[in-house]
Design a protein around this nucleic acid. Structure first.
Lengths: 218, 218
DNA sequence: CATTTCAGAGAGCAGTGCTCTCGTTCACCG
DNA sequence: CGGTGAACGAGAGCACTGCTCTCTGAAATG
C-alpha cells in the first residue's frame, strides 16, 4: 500500500525536480541564472504555475542554501574520518568550492540582496563545520601561540553564548584561535574562488592551503 | 581663460554627477540599487540618454570599483603614518568596511556576475594594500613562526611573479605569511560584514581584529 | 454523485539593460 | 556669417525578470 494518491506522488516528484533543476542552474549559470520562469519552462509549465510548488524565489534559495551547507559539511565529516586535522578541513572545503564555485559563493560570499535566511532552516547546517573545527581545536589545545593575548572577556561573550547553544564550552583562547583559523580558511578560499590572486593560481591551490595551515601553526 | 566650451563643462559635470549618484545608490541600496534608469531619472533625463555618458552598466561599475579601492587604500596609507603595524591595517580596513559595507562587498565579496574588470583600470588600485602589507611583513621579518614549512618553491611562482611586477621581491616565507595574514583579515571582515557570526558582534569588531592579529603573532 | 481542492493557463503589472530612430542644438570651420 | 557634423535628448520597443489575479478543468473527498 503506497498510502499516497497519484497527485501526492506527482507533487513530491515535481518538488524534487525543482530543487534539482535549481541546483543545476546554480552550478551552470550562477545565482542570476536561477530563474523561476526558466525552471517552469523546463518543467513544461507556464510561469505562474511554478508558484503552486514554491512560495517565491526566496523559498527556493533557502532550499539551495540548506543543500549546499549540508553537502560541504558532509564532505568535511567524511574526510575527517580518515585524517583528523585542520589541514583536512581546509583542503576538503577547498575541493568542494572548486567543484561548486557558485554554491560556495551562495553560502560564503556576499549575502543575497533582500534575502533573509530563516534561522531555523539554515543555521544548523550552516554551523556544522564551525562546530567541528572548534572541537578539533579544543583537543589540539595548547598547541602553540604562547604570548598571545586574548581580547577582554566581554568581547567574546556573543560567540561564547552562540557556541554554548550549539553544545560547546571552549575557553577564550580556543574561541579566538577558532575565529582566526576559520577566517583564514574562508578568506583564502574566497580569494581563490573570487580571483583576487590573479590567474594561474588554480594549479597550486592545495599547496597554498598547506602553507596557510602551516603558517597558522597546524 | 577656461579653454572649454559650455558643452564640455556640462559633460564633465554630468559625468561627475553620475559617479556621485552611483556611489550614493551603492551605499544606500547595494549594487542592485545601482540602476542606469534610476540615475537617468534623477538627472531629469530619459533612460536612453544616459548611454551618451556611460557605455553600459559595466563601465559604471568599473568606475565605482576603482573609487572604492582607492578610497580604502588611501585610508590605510594615512593610518599607517601614525602607527605602522599589521593591526592598524586590519582595523582601518574594518572601519572602512563598516562605513561602506556595500562598497566592501563590491570589491572583496562575490564578483559581479558577467562583469569582467578591465585589468588596467582596477588592478593597480586593487593591489595597493597588498603591496603595503607585503613590505610591512618583510620588515618585521623573522618575527616568529619557527618550524613553519613553506610549500614547494614552484607553488609560489605565480605570486612571486605577480609581486615582482609590482616592484617587490620578498622571499617565500614572507609571501606565505602575507597570504595568510591577508586571507585572515579579509576573511574576518567578510564574516563580520556578511553576518556569518550571527547578530550582536558589531559591538566588539575591533577587539576581534585585535585578537586575530595577536593570534597570528603580530 | 456532488463538492471541494488543486494544478495549470493566460493576461497583466512594474521593473531592468539596451538598441534604434528621429529631431534639435551646439561647436567648429571655410 | 552660414553650413555641417557631432553631440544630446526623447520616445518607442525588445527581451527578460518576479509576482498577482482570474478562470478552467480535473482529481480527490464526502
Amino acid at each position: 500500500m503506497t498510502n499516497s494518491t497519484p497527485r501526492q506522488r506527482a507533487r513530491l516528484e515535481t518538488e524534487a525536480q525543482i530543487t534539482r533543476i535549481g541546483n543545476r542552474m546554480l552550478d551552470d549559470d550562477g545565482l542570476d541564472g536561477v530563474s523561476l520562469r526558466a525552471i517552469a519552462r523546463e518543467l513544461g509549465i507556464v510561469s505562474s504555475a511554478i508558484y503552486r510548488y514554491v512560495k517565491n524565489r526566496d523559498e527556493l534559495l533557502t532550499i539551495l542554501i540548506r543543500d549546499a551547507f549540508t553537502s560541504i559539511a558532509d564532505d568535511v565529516d567524511e574526510a575527517l574520518e580518515d585524517d583528523t586535522s585542520v589541514l583536512t578541513v581546509g583542503v576538503t572545503m577547498l575541493a568542494w568550492s572548486r567543484r561548486h564555485p557558485n554554491r560556495w559563493a551562495l553560502i560564503y560570499g556576499t549575502p543575497v540582496p533582500d534575502y533573509q535566511a530563516p534561522r531555523d532552516e539554515t543555521v544548523v547546517p550552516g554551523t556544522r563545520i564551525m562546530v567541528t573545527l572548534t572541537t578539533l581545536l579544543s583537543q589540539s589545545s595548547a598547541h602553540r601561540t604562547p604570548n598571545t593575548q586574548v581580547p577582554p572577556a566581554h568581547a567574546l561573550d556573543v560567540l561564547r553564548e552562540g557556541l554554548r547553544e550549539l553544545g560547546l564550552e571552549p575557553d577564550d583562547q580556543v574561541i579566538m584561535r577558532t575565529v582566526t583559523v576559520w577566517a583564514a580558511i574562508i578568506g583564502l578560499i574566497n580569494a581563490l574562488r573570487f580571483g583576487q590572486f590573479g590567474p594561474g593560481i588554480e594549479l597550486v591551490e592545495d599547496e597554498l592551503m598547506q602553507g596557510l595551515t602551516s603558517t597558522l601553526g597546524y
